[in-house]
Simulated scan of single mutants.
Amino acid sequence: MPFANYKLPEAALSTAQKEELIHKTTDLLVSFFGEIVRPNTMVLVEEIKDGGYGRADEVFTIPPEYRAGD
């Protein structure tokens, strides 16, 4: 069973964008492994709260203008 796990900032994508990401990721994995894996392909989109991630000692938050609206 192919498995993809995306970790994204909370509210970075709308519900429709997350659905599209799941569909496109499934199609990508099917292109490698064949249609046989489609029913068992798992795509997990995890949303990380602001301040819950960072790089090189910098804690990230998403500016309001970059938040997706549902």
Rank of each mutant, 00 (worst) to 15 (best):
P9F: 04
Y6G: 02
P39M: 01
Y66G: 04
M1Q: 09
E20I: 03
Y53I: 06
E65Y: 12
G51Q: 07
K24V: 04
R38W: 00
A56F: 12
D57R: 04
F33W: 07
P64H: 10
V43G: 01
T15F: 08
A16Y: 02
E20A: 09
I36W: 10
L21W: 00
N5Y: 08
V37F: 06
E47G: 05
R38Y: 06
F3V: 11
D70N: 15
E10N: 10
F32G: 10
D50F: 08
A11F: 07
E10Y: 04
K49E: 12
A4K: 01
L28A: 05
G54D: 12
K7T: 10
Y66A: 14
A11Y: 10
I62H: 05
L8V: 15
K24I: 04
G51H: 11
T41D: 06
D50W: 02
T61W: 06
A68S: 14
L21N: 02
E58H: 14
G69A: 11
Q17M: 02
P63W: 09
N40M: 05
P9D: 10
I22R: 06
G34H: 09
L8D: 05
R67E: 07
P9V: 09
I22K: 03
G51N: 01
T15S: 15
A16L: 13
F32M: 14
P2Y: 05
P64E: 14
T26C: 09
L13Q: 03
K49W: 09
R38K: 15
K24M: 04
S31F: 00
V30G: 05
L8G: 04
E47L: 07
T15I: 14
D50L: 06
Q17A: 08
L44I: 13
I22E: 02
K24A: 10
G52P: 13
T26G: 01
N5L: 08
E47T: 06
P39F: 02
M42Q: 08
P9S: 12
P2N: 00
A12N: 09
E19F: 04
E58I: 15
